[in-house]
Amino acid sequence: MEAERRLRPEDVVELNPNYHFRWEEPQQAHVLLYPEGIVKLNQTAAAILEACTGAPSIADGTAELSRRYDKRNLGAEVLKFLEVAHAKGWIRVKS
């Protein structure tokens, strides 16, 4: 297995193109849909995914979250969740 390095704040991450991320009204939750699978996300997870995929970097996404929720020092929490999302294949590092 190729050695997986840990994510860094300057990394750019994107959603795995085989995954669809969206709000699902009946569930009142964000969901990830992928080949034959569903994941229902809690609010925090959804907010992090939304802010960090598509941002110029993880650090930028984190700053955006800090502004939106008026909270500081989110960096460690964000990286921890993104590591999990990365390990599960939901997101990938853009080269």
Binding site: P26, Q27, Y34, E36, G37, I38, V39, K40
Partner: peptide, 18 residues
């Protein structure tokens, strides 16, 4: 068919997710 680790432990709130 739902795969292990995907929909299996999902609480569908009583909805037919699949």
């Amino acid at each position: 068919m739902p795969k292990a680790g995907s929909g299996l432990s999902l609480d569908g709130l009583g909805m037919p997710l699949w």
